[in-house]
Design a protein around this nucleic acid. Structure first.
Lengths: 247, 247
DNA sequence: CGCCCACTTGAACGTGTTCAAACGTCGTGG
DNA sequence: CCACGACGTTTGAACACGTTCAAGTGGGCG
């Protein structure tokens, strides 16, 4: 009993359990994965484009993001990651990093050796499937971002991202009331959404004026979820958060 | 010997073998996967957003693409697929389609039941890993498209996509000289790159005027690969086509 | 106290859009 | 064989969304 209580507290168990109901052996396997905990300051790179990492990291506290740099110094942010995520899980099978990963806020990370994950996958094929599914959801989020950057006007694009982050943070219990800590600067929003910082600023003012959100000092408050998600045309299907509802 | 010759001719064997060297048993497993062959006309949907497919399809001949539609009818194309690709492999673990898949040209498809793939994955964990890696490369391409749509000017963005398609088509032996069949309309380029058809037209004229490419009647000729890939800042690392070079 | 960084504002500018029309090609049917 | 329609491509001109540049504001922290 205390075993399973312990296990449920483990972020990785919680995460994969939400993807696929695990049995006690599988939970134990995950819980006993050797993990090296490290703290990083905001802005620090975790892995860089071109690296060949031998480990991947679990976000325990704080936020991370993935990005690519262009020749002229322009940056495209590819994703944001919240506690419970394994942002570089793809490095298990893609041995050369095609992008970088950095700390968006001060973070607490748990590093896990690839060899240990591979062995776990061999012992528990269902865990392997759950990890695989996790990387597929990752890809689904990229697709939705493509739609946003390619075809949504600026204000709707921002609204959509805020909806996504709100839902994902809610899923890991980080929303209090309708308010959540979101330490993303306007410059980072700009690089994630393919816009300029100035335009992010002005578009956020529209969302505030419409009383959809408030966003200040790194705290997002969703003032009117229905209107916000309608404005963003937000449909959470792409997050695939409800595996039991999927036959 | 004839066995392995047969096996090497199978598109799926060729594909996964290029991802991870397979042994004869694994090749046989792939080759004997039951496959239902069907032909579709250009523009036909293969699976639609919201579907729960029980099978996935291997592109045998022709091209397909994935897309999403917005409320106002705008379309975002998410990827193009060439012979050898399995464009809806993700449906193995993501049971609700979050986008649609359609025929870009007349296509010949091989449909394979999920249950058969799952069984193969159980028998041959290395095949499962190869499939997993395939979906990870899929995601890597999404990331690169995000960079293009988010941060590259129109002409460079088109050039980058042409480089990608050229390399991928070359890898499956569809390039003759420096010329390749590419049945993508300017309207489809527009929806893939987040631009208008008019602007695609004008940007293509720039690429032609610079003597980088010619593109007419569904045939792309790369007139100057070095200049084209430099103009696009094209770095093929993200396609992860050289697994042996990845330690 | 002073600096750094994020946010905000204004104004000129530019890349890409929209609207509208014409051109060319191909396949179909009279 | 030619007329016709459908569709993809091309062109022009006005427009707009978002950018760039520049300056100033405000809060947190050493």
């Amino acid at each position: 009993m205390e075993h399973s209580a312990d296990a449920k507290d483990h972020p990785l168990v919680r995460r994969l359990d939400s993807i696929m109901a695990l049995n006690p052996d599988e939970r134990d396997g995950l819980r006993t994965l050797p993990m090296m905990v490290r703290h990083l300051a905001r802005g620090q790179d975790i892995v860089r484009e071109g690296d060949h990492p031998q480990q991947c990291c679990l976000v325990l506290e704080g936020f991370t993001f993935r990005y690519k740099l262009l020749g002229d110094g322009l940056r495209q942010i590819l994703s944001f990651h919240v506690p419970g995520d394994v942002p570089d899980l793809q490095s298990l099978h893609l041995h050369t990093m095609d992008h970088s990963l950095a700390a968006l806020s001060p973070v607490k990370l748990g590093f896990i050796r690839h060899s240990d994950v591979h062995e776990l996958n061999r012992r528990f094929p269902r865990i392997a499937s759950a990890f695989w599914r996790d990387t597929l959801i990752d890809a689904a989020v990229f697709r939705e971002w493509l739609v946003g950057i390619g075809r949504r006007p600026a204000a709707n694009r921002i609204a959509h991202l805020l909806c996504e982050l709100y839902v994902r943070l809610d899923a890991v219990g980080l929303v209090r009331g309708s308010s959540v800590s979101l330490p993303i600067t306007q410059n980072e929003f700009a690089d994630a959404l393919g816009l300029s910082t100035v335009h992010i600023n002005r578009s956020l003012q529209i969302l505030r004026a419409e009383n959809l959100i408030s966003l200040q000092a790194g705290t997002l408050v969703v003032e009117n979820w229905d209107e916000l998600s309608a404005f963003a045309e937000f449909d959470p299907t792409y997050l695939h958060m409800n595996p039991t509802a999927e036959p």
